[in-house]
């Protein structure tokens, strides 16, 4: 792998240059506590120390709501709504989010690729950014805390700048075309990178891994923990909407008055909603709130074989954004037989 360094005082110039490669999106503070990614005009607004965004990066590839095509009955025509996607750059993606995107790739880009997703994915440049975990993070247990593929550049924080790993031809291009921004990595940078990684590992709340969790989960589906926790659940869907790998959508046809024209839209759906499990004939695969609650645990912990990981990347969003304070990580720890002590 190719490694280069960006000196601290050049980072804003680097961000300016990124605009040459497409529309720049980066995390900014949107309220007292929350961050989200927005299109960046002034690079000084970018939040480098953000922990998580309320909308996961999936929003750039599967928009919360999109029109797929329109139908014209008079002309007997059907028109795709997706034009060519202009290149864009997502800055500041954490390791877990990059793995999450690769999971979405596995779902959307199989032998029947989703063209809407595919076009956007090809147009997107991914710039990763290192992070330090808070109490909600458990990417270490999911083995997604360090990412080795799926980005164009990945920036690791140094005391006086960033060590950048180059992960793709597009990444090489950015480095090659901006020689004044980048410099050689020195021994002290390597030492600092090592120290950062050490410190980071020490900071995770729990050590070890969650490799066996899906089996334990399957064996404990009758546990009363699930009665108690699902009882607390609001069924609001915040957990799935803020999850970087939740990818369920619903499709709806909207006719115009007169029925001559219409459009098909799709939008983020959630397994926490009643209609998600409803099929023709009125049968519902997940009739109770408990069924729906547990479904997310089963889905997130099942095995995504192309990457050898679970569908959960341990970002902690579902816990952080749960209005009912239901702790996903702790619940998994509990069924594993660990006592969770609150300070």
């Amino acid at each position: 792998m190719r490694y280069v360094k960006i000196k601290g005082d050049k980072i804003y110039e680097f961000l300016e240059r990124l605009k040459n490669y497409g529309k720049l999106y980066a995390p900014v503070k949107i309220s007292e506590k929350f961050y989200d990614r927005k299109e960046i005009d002034d690079v000084g607004e970018i939040a480098f120390d953000y922990q998580r965004t309320i909308m996961p990066a999936k929003k750039y590839f599967i928009p919360p709501c999109e029109e797929m095509f329109e139908i014209d009955m008079e002309e007997n025509e059907y028109r795709e709504k997706l034009e060519e996607v202009e290149p864009f750059v997502i800055f500041g993606m954490h390791a877990c989010e990059i793995v999450a995107l690769r999971i979405l790739d596995g779902v959307y880009l199989n032998e029947y690729p989703d063209i809407y997703y595919e076009r956007r994915r090809k147009a997107g440049i991914i710039i990763g950014l290192s992070c330090l975990p808070d109490e909600y993070c458990f990417c270490n247990l999911r083995r997604t805390d360090f990412v080795d593929i799926g980005f164009d550049l990945f920036l690791h924080e140094l005391p006086d700048g960033y060590l950048a790993r180059v992960g793709s031809p597009k990444g090489h291009k950015i480095v090659d075309e901006n020689p004044d921004i980048f410099e050689e990595v020195r021994q002290e940078d390597i030492d600092a990178f090592r120290a950062f990684e050490e410190k980071r590992q020490e900071m995770f709340k729990f050590k070890g891994n969650f490799d066996n969790i899906r089996y334990i989960l399957e064996l404990t589906m009758q546990d009363k923990l699930w009665d108690e926790e699902s009882e607390k659940c609001l069924g609001c869907g915040n957990c799935t909407m803020t999850c970087p790998t939740c990818r369920c959508y619903d499709v709806q046809d909207i006719p115009e008055i007169g029925g001559k024209k219409g459009k098909r839209i799709r939008f983020w759906d959630s397994c926490q909603f009643r209609s998600h499990g409803l099929v023709a004939g009125g049968h519902n695969f997940r009739e109770t709130k408990r069924d729906r609650f547990l479904n997310r645990y089963i889905c997130k912990n099942s095995y995504f074989y192309p990457l050898g990981t679970s569908y959960c990347v341990g970002c902690g969003n579902c816990t952080y954004f749960c209005p009912a304070n239901i702790d996903f990580q702790e619940n998994l720890m509990k069924i594993r037989g660990r006592e969770v002590i609150h300070e």
């Binding site: 989200d36 909308m55 919360p64 915040n238 803020t242 983020w268 959630s270 009643r274 209005p323």
Partner: peptide, 13 residues
């Protein structure tokens, strides 16, 4: 489904 779904889709805090 509840208003929360649309609130998250809108990107509101």
């Amino acid at each position: 489904y509840p208003v929360c779904a649309e609130c998250r889709r809108q990107g509101y805090p």
